[in-house]
Simulated scan of single mutants.
Amino acid sequence: MSTEVPAVIAELAGDDTVTLVWRNELGGLTYRLDGAVVRYAKWVAAGTPEIDLMAEAERLAWASRWVAVPPVLEHGTSPGEEWLVTAAVPGTSAVNERWRGEPEVAARAIGRGLRLLHDTLPASACPYDWSVERRLRRARERFADGEGPDDWSPEHRHLGLDEARAIIERPPPLDRPVVCHGDACVPNTLLHDDGAFAAHVDLGSLGVADRWADLAVAAWSLDHDFGPGHDAGLYEGYGIEPDPVRLAYYRLLWDLA
C-alpha cells in the first residue's frame, strides 16, 4: 500500500517508523508507529461519513474499565482532518495470514471474544446506542439519498428496494440486549499466538443492541475473509445455536444502514 503520510501523522510519529496497515473503503487510514513503544494512529479527512474518531475515543475509554481494548493516547482535530492515537495491545488480527491458515481457530476465538464482551460490559450502564431504531434512521437517510440495490451486497440485490425496506422495518423480537462491538468483523478481533482471544479493536460504533447484531456481522465476515463453512466455530465459541431469522435480518440491516 502506498499513500502519502498525512503531515499530522508524520509529526506524531517523529523518528518512529511509519507503516500504513489499513485503508478502509471510506478513505480512513491506520498507521503503525514503531519506536520505543508501538502505537497505532488513525486518520480521516474531516466530514467523512460513518467515521467519528471522537466517538471511538470515548467508547474505548468507557469500555477499557472492563475489557481489553487499545488505550487512547491522543485525539485531535483540525479544520480538515481528525486523528486518534492508541497504544498497541498484545495480539495479531484474526485476518492475519497465520489465522487464514487456521480459520476454525480464528472463528472460535471470535465467538469467545464476543461472548466475553457481551457478558462483561454492563448494558444498563452503557451510554451508547446501536439499536435497530437508530440504525433504521440511517437506512432511511440512505434511501432518501437515492441509494438502492446497486449499492448493496450481491446476496441482497434480488430483494429490490420495496421488499428490502419492508423487511428491515419489521425486526425480529429482541433476544438479549448487550453492549455490542458494532463492527465485529474478522479484522477487529486480536488473537494470542496460541489462538486464544486477546482483544477487540475499532469500537467506534459500540453500543447497546441485540447480541445477534454482532453475531450476524461476525458470521458474514467469516464468509468474506475465510470462505463459507466456518461459522459453526463462531457459534461454538460463543456458546449458542445459530438463529437463521435473526442472522438474515441483521445482515440485511448492516448492508442497508
Rank of each mutant, 00 (worst) to 15 (best):
S2P: 05
S2W: 01
S2D: 12
T3W: 06
E4C: 03
V5E: 09
P6A: 00
A7C: 04
G14L: 12
G14T: 09
D16T: 04
V18M: 07
V18C: 06
T19K: 12
R23C: 10
R23G: 07
L26C: 02
G28F: 04
D34K: 13
V37F: 01
V38K: 13
Y40F: 15
A41W: 02
A45F: 03
A45P: 06
G47Q: 04
T48K: 10
I51A: 05
L53E: 11
E58S: 09
R59M: 07
L60I: 13
A61K: 02
A61D: 04
A61G: 01
S64G: 15
S64E: 15
W66F: 14
V67S: 11
V69L: 00
P71Q: 06
H75C: 03
S78E: 11
P79R: 01
L84C: 05
V85W: 00
A88D: 12
A88Q: 08
V89F: 14
A94G: 07
N96K: 00
N96P: 00
E97C: 05
R98G: 02
W99F: 11
R100D: 06
E104T: 13
G111R: 08
G113A: 05
G113P: 14
L117K: 03
D119Y: 09
T120N: 09
P122I: 05
A125R: 10
C126L: 10
P127N: 01
Y128S: 01
W130D: 08
W130P: 05
E133R: 13
E133D: 15
R134L: 10
R134N: 08
R134T: 03
R137Q: 13
A139P: 00
R140E: 15
R140N: 03
E141S: 04
R142Y: 14
R142A: 07
F143Y: 14
F143T: 00
F143S: 02
A144F: 07
D145P: 05
D145G: 11
D150Y: 08
P154N: 08
E155I: 08
E155F: 02
H158N: 10
H158Y: 14
H158Q: 12
R165Y: 06
E169I: 11
E169T: 10
E169R: 14
P172V: 14
L174H: 01
L174C: 13
D175Y: 15
V178E: 14
C180I: 01
G182K: 10
A184H: 01
C185H: 05
L190T: 00
L191S: 04
L191K: 12
H192Q: 15
D193G: 15
F197H: 08
A198I: 00
D202C: 02
S205W: 03
L206D: 04
L206C: 14
A209V: 01
A209C: 11
R211Y: 11
R211T: 04
A213P: 09
D214N: 09
L215H: 13
A216P: 06
A216T: 03
V217Y: 13
A219S: 04
W220I: 08
L222M: 11
H224E: 05
H224C: 00
H224F: 02
P228A: 08
H230E: 11
D231G: 05
G233H: 01
L234T: 00
Y235D: 10
Y235G: 03
E236V: 07
Y238H: 02
P242A: 11
P244Q: 12
P244W: 00
R246D: 03
R246M: 02
R246F: 02
R251A: 03
L252Q: 03
L253R: 12
